[in-house]
Design a protein around this nucleic acid. Sequence first.
DNA 1: GTATTGATCAAACGTTCGTTTAGCCCCAGG
DNA 2: CCTGGGGCTAAACGAACGTTTGATCAATAC
Lengths: 206, 206
Amino acid sequence: MKGADARQRILDAAVVLFARQGFDRTGMRALAEKAGVNLAMINYFYGSKKRLLTEILDIFFAGYLEIARDELAATGELSARVRRFVRRAIAFFASHRDFMLVAISELHHDDPEIIGHKAAWARQMLEVMEESFAPSPAAAEEMHLSPKLMAPLLTSMMASRFLFSPVLDRVDRDPGDMVELERYSEIIAGIVLHGITGRVARGVDA
Amino acid sequence: MKGADARQRILDAAVVLFARQGFDRTGMRALAEKAGVNLAMINYFYGSKKRLLTEILDIFFAGYLEIARDELAATGELSARVRRFVRRAIAFFASHRDFMLVAISELHHDDPEIIGHKAAWARQMLEVMEESFAPSPAAAEEMHLSPKLMAPLLTSMMASRFLFSPVLDRVDRDPGDMVELERYSEIIAGIVLHGITGRVARGVDA
DNA sequence: GTATTGATCAAACGTTCGTTTAGCCCCAGG
DNA sequence: CCTGGGGCTAAACGAACGTTTGATCAATAC
């Protein structure tokens, strides 16, 4: 069954090209060439270009949602759950960088099919968020930390480094000032929990 | 001088279509029709489709940078500066919503001309950030709040509501749970400063 | 009155797009 | 042996793309 190879190579090439050039800028011919397959094989395996995109979206959202379920909606202190969630999610963003860029950079399209597809995933994520923040101290309710606010906020915060890096890498004011992933996770978790003026949130906290 | 009208109408239509459909999905003919001008007028005024995009980018980045300079890099307590910056920036994002969506949603393109254009703006923003966080207490240095981390982070946090709203609006689990802009600004500023577990950061603080 | 200039237009340029078709190759099942 | 069908291909489809051209029109300058 040689077909499985080709099918996978198409998806690998697609996620790279979609992330770097955008979905619309990426032509089927360039995609076929990078994947090393014939042009017609793409629609043979995936039916259409759009279906190929939704498959990429599903891979990312399924992985992201699973992490949220595992860590954020578990039992235990809110701060510990947030810390573990942020660490795993950022590691996942890094290992699936191009999947993530496609998933949250290709947001603007009016296409009701794509938007509906994403909304189905978002609905599940909102449930996790609600479950995770609902039994929190009254402060959360008081601050209006609704799921519809927290889900985009947490995602944006963790993704910010990857979202802007194509531009920031070309600035090069001070190369080498990019913190490594492990510490990046701690910083983001610290800010989520205590903000930038809060006590230094490295390591364990109360 | 009827031309100024047409030129402005083209830009108005472009920013709406680019934000809703994306730059690549928006054709010159659809753009011309929405603007109520002849197809050839777009390149007559702007030279090319890409030049029209850079003009939109400049409008957004110039406004955003000015706010950062005014509020963030001013004198005074860090928390007060952050609070005022967040408030003004979010108001600017809301009033220039489509400009912002184009500016930060159209990030993936490999096009060196566009990336270089954005990098020039990012360089200035990083200078403001450095200036704003450099004379902070040692905690900032300790937490590695480098400009290259803070600039994308703050921007992403404030933009998260607008970035994901096309999808979230279609979820409709609990319509009406979207907080209004004024309170949204306070919440974001509170999280930036004190996190979600910090003391409730509404109103004045020490 | 005539030349100049900038705004506007319809039409066409060549290219690239996503998709489809018709057929080849090769191997398992009868 | 042959017969199907899945993997695979070259070629073509019509449509849409961004851009350019040459002409027309109105108003200004000489």
